[in-house]
Amino acid sequence: MESNRFAKNVTDTLYTIAGILFCGFALKGFLVPNQFFDGGVSGISLMIHELYHWNIAIVIILANIPFIIMGAFQVNKTFAIRTFTAIIGLALCLHFIPYPQITSDKLLVSVFGGVFMGIGVGLSMRGGCALDGIEVLALYTGKRVSFTVSEIILGINILIFLVAAFKLGLPTALYSIMTYYSASKTINFVVEGLEEYTGVTIISAQSEKMKEGLVMKLGRGITVYKGERGYLKESFDISQPVDIIFTVVTRLELRRLKNMAHEIDPKAFIFTSVIKEAAGGVLKRVQRH
């Protein structure tokens, strides 16, 4: 038990260090030299640095302190301590590591600056901390208003980009929106990876063949709900019992599943849903941090 905990702590630390190095590379190699910025707390820090020319390392620490305090209450103290340590590490990285400026091409800066920033933030999330505290603020606000966390984050970032457009010019704001978009997509990929799971529900008259194909050919576990099908407009009083099949597959397996289901029953009703977290059962999943 102790050895597993030690190994997990070492892995978390390595993830966090790698995340810090990638974020430092994105900031000093792409964003800061070209007066670009990102969304979230990083975007606020870069904007303050650009407008008032304060040291970016100090600004990042000061900008994240309120969110670290929030994190202690919204998540737990361990998360807050890890996040504070990671932010200090990022500030030291920015101050002491002489990252070279990679390019001045605005398109390359907006895309690859966001990609490397997303890799860094995503790795830090896998390490159990946050190099950008905007989601902590969204969790805090979400308990007091009726908006979702995603809607709150979007609203905050819209305000950031509006201020940027007014203070730094519309082209800079538009390029920075591209940076934020590439960063957010990269974060999702780093955290979820290619093994991001998709829930698939199948309603078919050939449910027995469908169950056999899912289990025996695809090697998937299934859950079966008892339901009824029918109730069409022209024959509302007619219905038949049916097995509603639910299974979970990776994105890479989804096309194969749909092809198999179509071969068995071209009229099968199939719909999918995004699975944010999945563990246990017959899933072979790498542990998420």
Rank of each mutant, 00 (worst) to 15 (best):
V59A: 11
I68K: 05
K267V: 09
G213K: 11
L139A: 01
K258Q: 15
V190H: 04
V224W: 02
A173P: 10
I160L: 15
H262W: 07
I87Y: 05
G122R: 07
V59E: 08
E212S: 14
I68C: 01
H49Q: 14
L27R: 04
M210Q: 02
L107M: 14
E2I: 07
L90H: 01
S182E: 00
S235C: 04
K77R: 10
G120D: 01
E208M: 05
V215P: 03
G142T: 06
Y52C: 05
Y99T: 04
I17T: 12
R144N: 12
F269R: 11
A278Q: 05
G113N: 03
T13K: 05
R229A: 14
V136E: 05
G71C: 04
A130G: 12
L21M: 15
R126Q: 13
Q206S: 12
C23R: 03
E50C: 06
E234A: 09
I245L: 13
P241W: 01
Y197I: 00
N9G: 05
R220T: 06
T148Q: 01
M260F: 08
L168A: 11
K276A: 08
H262C: 07
A86S: 14
Q101A: 11
I264L: 12
Q206I: 04
V215H: 04
F236M: 10
E50F: 11
V274K: 14
T83D: 04
E192L: 07
E151Y: 00
I58R: 13
L94H: 00
Y52F: 15
R288E: 13
L27Y: 13
V163R: 04
V121G: 00
S207T: 11
Y15L: 08
R220M: 07
L232P: 01
F161K: 10
I87V: 15
F166L: 15
K276T: 10
D237Y: 13
D38P: 06
L107Q: 00
N259T: 14
S146H: 13
T247M: 05
L252Q: 11
H95N: 09
N76C: 00
F79I: 03
S204V: 00
F236I: 09
I134N: 05
V242G: 06
G221W: 04
F236P: 06
V282G: 07
M125V: 14
Y15C: 14
Q287G: 11
V121N: 00
K106T: 08
S176G: 03
H262F: 08
E228T: 09
E192N: 06
T85G: 09
E50Y: 15
V248R: 09
I68L: 10
F147W: 13
I61D: 06
Y231Q: 11
F161I: 08
I68T: 10
P266V: 06
S273H: 13
R82L: 12
Y175D: 08
S239D: 06
F96T: 13
F79Y: 14
Y231M: 10
T198P: 00
E2G: 06
A18N: 10
R256P: 00
M216F: 12
V145G: 03
D38C: 01
G122L: 03
M1P: 02
P241D: 10
Q240I: 07
P171Y: 07
I203Y: 04
R255G: 00
I245T: 08
E151F: 05
V190D: 02
T16P: 08
